[in-house]
Amino acid sequence: MKFKMYWGTWLFLLALTLAMLFVGGGTARLALLALLLVAMMVKAVLIGANFMHLRSEHRVLVWMVAAGLLFVGLALFAGIAPDGIRAFTLRG
């Protein structure tokens, strides 16, 4: 089979998704939340690396995507979302 990597990735993604469904969906405790977020990032990296071929691309392109999407995306999320707590407290 020439496309073993793709279907291996597929299997792995499915397993992760099922595991996430098993633990998620309810009132999340903090540890569980962290676990879910880590699993989410693992899935994203798997898709990027294997399906989008980032693992075989030039490392500069990989860094570009990592910096552009991961760094800026995380800066955006981490800089904005937690301030919602502040909005909640100000509202009283």
Partner: peptide, 11 residues
């Protein structure tokens, strides 16, 4: 998604 996170925490 950042806006969603913000609004969810603000709610």
């Amino acid at each position: 998604l950042a806006a969603y996170g913000f609004l969810r925490l603000a709610a």
